[in-house]
Amino acid sequence: MISYRELRTLSLDFRRISSNLLNSDDDNADVNMIRFKKFIDETPFISQLLHNAMDGVDYDFKKCFLIEDSGWHSIEIPADEKLHIKAQYDYMTFIVESDKCSVTGQAMRFPHSSNKWADIIQSFISNAFKPLIDYINDAISKEIILLEEEQKQTPSMVQNIGSVYGSAVQGTTITSTNVTNVNDNEKLLEMLGQAINALASIDAPEDIKADLQDDIEVVSEQIASPTPKKSRLNKALAGIKKFAAEFGMKVAVSTAVGTVTGFDWYKLIQAIETFVDKIK
């Protein structure tokens, strides 16, 4: 899948190469069309887009571009957009691959009012191929918009379990951003394993410790699952939170005992919450 950054670059490249084609004159029209055709064929996103539009469409471009009459050539645009896209693509292929055809030669056969070569060529390219350019351009822009929307919906990414970055504004508000890499599920699983080990050192009734262990194991299962269930995670998380609230002091004491048994339950809760928030 193409990334947001790649798509933005592709958009700029495509608009530049399309503009070059639309601004062609008799010196560079053929080269610009060859470059344009090569670009759309060799760029996977555009190539796939055109394949999606054209595959299975059986249409002769000469029904759209009436180029076999001895008089002036003309364009009869089909109502179906897919037929039009295919006709434009095939006509462009015809011009690019034919030894006898040139863009200027084709342009001169269509009715024109100007006596300048550049105007005649630009008018022809605009009339014949601008809808194809607009179709691709719009598809790229739509994809960028969709990716932007997705980025807005995704909660801010976190890095590094165990690290809390924050900033404080003296005297007014304290803003804290807990940065935890929930993408790194292995680290979260590792934390859950450490939590189970830390249970032994906590001075709490055995049944409560057993419930907590169950909750931690549920969280571990869900994190390891390809399709984690939010409801199960929330239920287990509620159990862990309840434990932390009721035995906060004892947990704090166990943390203070030493680095071997010390475990930060609150960081674990934050990391699980961030993971849950990411599930749609």
């Binding site: 608009r15 399309s18 503009s19 639309l22």
Partner: peptide
């Protein structure tokens, strides 16, 4: 700014 195409 709308269609993104460029010219002199």
């Amino acid at each position: 700014p709308y269609c993104g195409l460029t010219k002199s």
